[in-house]
């Protein structure tokens, strides 16, 4: 059984193909990386998986989500009502910019509470306990204080942890992470990546990880699909792709990643 099956996904707007014929699949508990430069269509692919393509874009091909308990859903053909039942439970997402991903006028605790209240039907004291537990699970120190704070009152890394807590609140079968660490400081990046890695493994969740950074993708996923100009140019296990890249673009990617690594080695005696 596959959890997510994307077959021949093509996204076009104004007669131009932004993504053409991309296919991949994710098993339950599996981890797949989508890698590519900006404009390669990786974020659009993620939005298509969530059924959240902006108006004016049309998608063809097939995106099928088959999560236990949520049934088989053809995401591209499904209506908003059906999608709302799938979102959160079958699939959820963490985005790049944690400041804008949180409502600036709402206390953090209320934002985390929202999906818990709706999905698990929690109220009052139980809801409050669940919010604090969710914040604790993403390793936020002093969850009481964070729950009371507004998004601008906590740091970028803390915000991203809150965003992760919100995404995990409904226990999704698949987590889509669209450049979740790109906007963070390097040291915080490593922390958040490790957190995400641990949570996904702990819950047996599947992960669709999107990044422009080969090193980051290699750290958290098993398989990788390389996108360029809306086409999948290479795919395979992370080991294969890093060891023996076939497509010239992938070779470039691997070479530049190694080059950066070497530069670091040079400087450290």
């Amino acid at each position: 059984m596959t959890l997510l099956d994307v077959a021949g996904l093509t996204i076009r707007t104004g007669g131009r193909d932004l993504v053409s014929g991309v296919s991949f699949s994710v098993e339950p508990g599996g981890r797949l990386g989508l890698i590519g430069e900006s404009g390669s269509g990786k974020s659009l692919t993620a939005l298509a998986v969530l059924g959240l393509l902006p108006p004016g874009m049309t998608a063809s091909g097939a995106v099928v989500l088959d999560a236990p308990g949520a049934g088989r859903t053809d995401v591209l053909g499904a209506g908003e009502r059906r999608l709302n039942r799938v979102r959160g439970r079958a699939v959820s997402a963490v985005f790049q910019e944690p400041l804008t991903a949180l409502d600036p006028l709402m206390r953090v605790g209320r934002q985390v509470a929202e999906p818990l209240r709706r999905r698990r039907g929690l109220r009052g004291r139980a809801l409050r306990a669940a919010v604090l537990a969710a914040l604790e699970e993403v390793r936020l120190a002093d969850p009481e204080r964070v729950a009371r704070a507004y998004p601008h009152e906590i740091s970028g890394g803390q915000r991203q942890r809150v965003a992760i807590a919100m995404a995990l609140a409904c226990d999704p079968a698949l987590l889509v992470a669209d450049e979740p660490t790109t906007a963070l400081d390097v040291t915080v990046q490593a922390d958040v990546l490790a957190l995400l890695d641990g949570l996904v493994a702990g819950r047996g969740m599947a992960l669709l990880f999107i990044s422009h950074d080969l090193a980051v993708v290699a750290r958290v996923t098993e398989r990788v699909v390389v996108l360029r100009d809306g086409r999948a140019v290479e795919s395979g296990s992370v080991g294969e792709v890093v060891r023996a890249p076939r497509h010239p673009y992938t070779q470039d990617l691997v070479a530049s990643a190694r080059h950066l690594d070497r530069a670091l080695d040079w400087r450290t005696p």
Binding site: R148, S155, G157, A194
Partner: peptide, 19 residues
């Protein structure tokens, strides 16, 4: 793999005030 607790980079912000 366990994730470390919040690093120093995520310094604490002042508490949110209710008043």
């Amino acid at each position: 793999m366990t994730a470390p607790l919040i690093g120093e980079a995520e310094a604490a912000a002042p508490p949110a005030r209710r008043r």
